[in-house]
Amino acid sequence: MSVLAIARMELLIARRNMWVATSLILMGLFSSVLTLAGGAPTGTLGVDPLLIATTSVTTLSVYLIPLIGLLLSFDAIAGEAERGTLALSLTYPLSRGEILLGKFVAHLMVLGFAVAVGLALTAGLTIWKYSTTDLNYVPLLELFFSALALGAAFLGIGYTVSAKARQTGVASGIVIIIWLVCVVLYDLGLLGALVADDGGTFTKTIFPWLLVANPADAFRLINMPVETVSTLATGLGAAGRASGFGLQLTSLLIWPVLALGLAWAAFRRVEP
C-alpha cells in the first residue's frame, strides 16, 4: 500500500514538474520526425516500412531513454535529503525499499508512457504515409519492452548516484557524465580499440562481451536484427552480432535488477 502511495505522489510531482510533458515531447517529436524523414533513402523497396522506422527510433532511443531515465531519478533521494522531506518520510511506518520501489514504479510509468506515445506516433505516421496497415508490429513491441528495461536500468543507476551524492547539484553532474560515457564514449572507445586491434583476438573474444555489457549497446543490438540496416546505423552493430540474442537479452534484464539492487544498498546507508 505504501508503495502505491509513494508512486501516486511521485506521479503527481512528475506531472507538476513537467517531467511527464518533457519526456512526452522529446519522444513524440523525435519519433515523428524520424518516421517521416527516415524512410526517404530506402524508398519503397519492399522492406517493411515500419522496420525502417523502428530502426531510426532505436538509434534515437539509445540516447534519449537513458537521458530521460537519469533526469527522472537523479533528484529522487538527494533532493529529498536536501529538502528534509526524507527524514520525515522515514519516520512513517514504511521501509526504504518501499520508498525506492514506489518512486521506481512512478518513474517507469512516466518513461513507459513517453515511449508508448512515441511508438504509437511512429506506427500511426507509417500507416498514414504508406496507406497500409499490413505491417509487422512485433519489432515495435520488442522496442517498447526493451526500452522499458533500458529505462529501468538507468533509473536504478540514477537512484544509486542520488543516494551516494546526497546533493542534487553533484548528482546531476555525475549522471550527465554517466550518460555521456554509456551512450557516446563507451562506443567510441570500443571502436578505437577495434581499429587498433585490426581483427585480432580482442575483436573476436573480448569485444562482443564488452559491447553487450553496456545496456545501451545491448538494447541497440536487440532492436536492429537486420544485418544491412544495423551496419548502416552503426559500425559496431555488425561486429557485435557475435554476442547473440540470448546474451543481449540477459544484459538488458540483469542491468535493471543490478542497478536497483545497488540503489537500495546505497539508500540503506543514507542517514537523513
Partner: peptide
C-alpha cells in the same frame, strides 16, 4: 525546519 514538496 519542516519542508515539503512545493509542487503539491
Amino acid at each position: 525546519s519542516v519542508a515539503f514538496h512545493g509542487a503539491l
